[in-house]
Design a protein around this nucleic acid. Structure first.
Length: 301
DNA sequence: AATATAAACAACCGCTCTTCA
DNA sequence: ATGAAGAGCGGTTGTTTATAT
């Protein structure tokens, strides 16, 4: 009593398409079009396939002017920008990339691009942190030992709060990081800022209990408009908690980077500082900071 | 050289959205 | 106005190909 199948599954072939099947389908559609009826098409042309399968084959493979593989750097940026902004809305993303299908982009993201982006983000973060120092004590010692290109973290055991104070010399930021900036400022991404995101929110969205981890990074950066939009949208468009965590993770880094670059561009400052205080718990540490610090923040043993 | 493991990718499934009689 | 059929979507699976042991 489930849903009725779209076709007789026993009389229908599954799996990869043969060149012969491709040729029949392609030549028919090129001559007569699809006739707005995929379900009856296979019977009409004598192919033992489900109508949905024919449609998919045509749309993703046989249709003219399709590209396969060989994604360019520009396409990478566009895909990443969109994913970070609107999540896995593959058909929307595909509509921005001529000759690419949603299926292709989805596969590419899942198998390669996601890893590529994550490793870039991690590299960029490493680069930014430059030199992390962690001390225990009271907040009164805080400012004394802070210097250029250093992030100082100070844990006050009495209040169980950790303060941080980051000072970055802009000249130490590499061209790699500038490349990241161009992604953040991608015009495609900016064009999205006027969309009405609330209209289509997510029945399957749920807050993950780690959702506070990124705000801890956000609080370091104040607010560039792009970064703010990005994190807002993020909270509405994630699909499951793993993806959400991962996306917040990336967005947090981007916010931080965007803030850095904006300050460099607008103020021509020699120094950029971030200051703040957070109540730290182990979740926060594990997720955002501790894996990037070469020595433990706490001695738990 | 043989086998195990991972990556890549096409295609499938079940659902939702749209269209039209 | 309404509901069934068609189209579209995105997560996931299954198979092939590449890489590691």
């Amino acid at each position: 009593m489930g849903r009725a199948p779209c076709c007789d599954k026993t009389a229908v072939k599954k799996g990869p398409w043969s060149p012969e099947e491709d040729a029949v389908l392609k030549s028919y559609i090129e001559k007569y079009g699809t006739g707005n009826n995929w379900i009856s098409l296979p019977q009409r042309i004598g192919i033992k396939r489900c109508g949905k399968s024919c449609r998919l084959r045509w749309l993703n493979y046989l249709r003219p002017n399709l590209k396969h593989g060989g994604f360019t750097d520009e396409e990478d940026y566009i895909i990443c920008s969109f994913y970070i902004t609107i999540g896995s809305r593959w058909s929307i993303i595909a509509s921005q990339l001529p000759g690419r299908t949603d299926n292709d982009i989805k596969n590419y993201w899942n198998t390669r691009l996601k890893k590529k982006l994550l490793s870039k983000q991690v590299k960029a973060f490493h680069h930014q942190q430059l030199n992390v120092k962690f001390e225990r004590g009271t907040t009164s010692n805080m400012s004394s030992s802070s210097s250029q290109n250093q992030i100082l973290m100070l844990h006050d055991e009495n209040t169980n709060k950790t303060s941080y104070n980051q000072v970055v010399d802009p000249s130490s930021i590499t061209s790699f990081a500038m490349e990241e900036q161009s992604m953040i400022k991608n015009p495609v991404l900016e064009s999205l800022s006027n969309w009405d995101y609330d209209a289509a929110t997510s029945s399957n969205y749920h807050h993950h209990h780690h959702h506070h981890s990124s705000p801890s990074l956000n609080s370091m950066s104040s607010s560039s408009s792009i970064a703010t939009n990005s994190s807002l949208q993020m909270s509405h468009y994630t699909v499951n908690s793993n993806d959400q965590q991962e996306m917040l993770f990336m967005a947090g880094f981007e916010n931080l980077q965007a803030e850095l670059f904006n300050e460099i561009a607008n103020d021509d400052m020699r120094e950029i500082g971030f200051h703040g205080t957070e109540t730290l718990d182990n979740d926060w540490l594990d997720h955002d900071i501790s894996s990037f610090v070469d020595y433990p923040l706490y001695n738990n043993e």
